[in-house]
Design a binder for these strands. Sequence first.
RNA 1: GGGGGCGUAGCUCAGCUGGUUAGAGCGCCUGCCUGUCACGCAGGAGGUCGAGGGUUCGAGUCCCUUCGUCCCCGCCA
Length: 594
Amino acid sequence: MNLSRTYCRETATVALGTDVKICGWLDTMRDHGHIVFLHLRDISGVVQVVLDPESLGDLSGFKLRSESVLIVTGRLRNRTEDTVNHKLHTGKIELFAASLEIVNDSETPPFAISERDGDVLDDVDEDLRLRYRYLDLRRPKMQASLIKRHKVTKAIRDFLSDERFIEVETPVLTKSTPEGARDYLVPSRVHHGGFYALPQSPQLFKQLLMVAGLDRYFQIARCFRDEDLRPTRQPEFTQVDLETSFMTENEIIDLVERLLVTTLASVGVTVTAPFPRISYDDAMLQYGNDHPDLRYDMCITDVTHVFKNTQYNIFKGIIQSGGAIRGFAIRGQSARLGKNILQNEFAKNVIPKLGGKGLTWMKLENGELLSNIVQFFSKEELDEIVSLLDAKDGDVLVFVADRNPGLVSEILGKFRLYLVTYLALVPTVLFAPCWVTDFPMFEKSDTGWAAMHHPFTQPSSPIPDSPDDAWMSSVKAKAYDIVLNGVEIGGGSIRNHRVDQQERLFKLLGLSDKDIDEKFGFFLKALRYGAPPHGGLALGLDRLVSMILDTPSIRDVIAFPKNRMAYCPLTQAPDHVSESQLTDLSLSIVPPKA
RNA sequence: GGGGGCGUAGCUCAGCUGGUUAGAGCGCCUGCCUGUCACGCAGGAGGUCGAGGGUUCGAGUCCCUUCGUCCCCGCCA
């Protein structure tokens, strides 16, 4: 029989009585002595194979072990009604084996690969999974993740290609530039003492492509940053990097919204454009951070003015010293949040850990505000609070007051997210994207002013000849972040296409003429040759896919990730290199400082 | 860089205020079994309790050091 291969899952749709050949791994086996049932697994799924001495002879000749590689031919037949497996896609049929070839044996794997009855085996130690990643990736769940990632990537490529974007590769060996994250460095053999840097992003190259007139560029680009890792951070990660000429901030936002709507739809996730837009200032006030999770309400409201003339001394003192009072409503949780929890757990325990001094809480029941301190407030004050927070019976109102207004929102923002977990709140929608806009252009650092987004971003107004601190601290950037479910999944900006503005900006950021020339001379030169207005954005592909699949870490959507220590347990990289390699590079290893 | 959790059989874990020979489930090995699908039944192997040191008559358990790993903060234009 010279049969072509059929994938396991597809045997369900092949006509009964057909002879087929399937290839894959031995998933599970049920040996009844004179008859053997086994599940054969390939990337498509699982199908039951029947081994019967009638057709195969003495079965004891087969050394069958889990994860052995088998090629089986035979005839597809119906199962009898009482032997149908409803949990299996191919559960109505089975393959009656005519031949069985054990193509390769397998040692007993260190952890289970079969998902059998839908078992999820994610609780195996991650280090072990990474050490045997090729086995981990054999698990159907992990394969499904990589397949979904592929679909997302393909949808992105298709969409952008249809929108006249051109995919261009940029160098991985490039030049180290100041600011930003720590670079990964690659020593040069040919250029004694010289180092390449791996790109933190293709930022400068994509801008040069705009100068080149490519008009619309994109790349599924690997980026590298040598910083400490997190569940959402790997030393190398993938960005959907794009840049356009002659487009405004609004046009880019619209384009990226359509990109995300289309891409997410391709994997069954629905989001509707336009996405809400929140200014940086509003986000900081209402959610306490610049990446608000809009799946939940509990929006923070400033109520400072309500208590201008309050008799409550704590509030009075804080207002008099320039502080703020803010709060939010926890909807319909009055019954679950007793006085004991609110006072002894939240006010005395949780809020102090978040950096707050205390928590004022009130419950609205039968149209009346109840709390341990309600008697200190006037009826007008209480009525106004109810109105401002749109409080209803069953709501719990919580307030934090502090002399530092920024801290108030920060604490409440953290408390809000704490409550989501504590109360196991159900999100109003599964996927809640939003834009955060109007970022400050600059932020204070230890050494002076730093660019909040990056030093190629255009300020919302031209840089004056000699800007003062008031201008520096108030000017906004033409920068925008895209946030999904409280995670920043991308960000971008309109860039400086005018060389005078870009030079001025570098100087404001404290770069010397020499630094500017050495690090960015080539780039500034390019801007002098007819650089068009341009701007773009980069999306974190790993984060996006991780959110779609709701995995705890982006490691789960990367085929071969590094562990928390930026180490690869599979290949054992990084590793020492030979003396001769070091000699070629004129390097020597200095012992670490004690 | 700071803080926290974890480390006991191949895997996931239990092991109390320190006390005989360290257990369970799954997996693995052997045998039996003709309709199972988390097959079943009978038997078996498998442990330097991460490592080193200390306290103690006695340490998986307490203390110190160290290694590994995960999480939070710093950091991440």
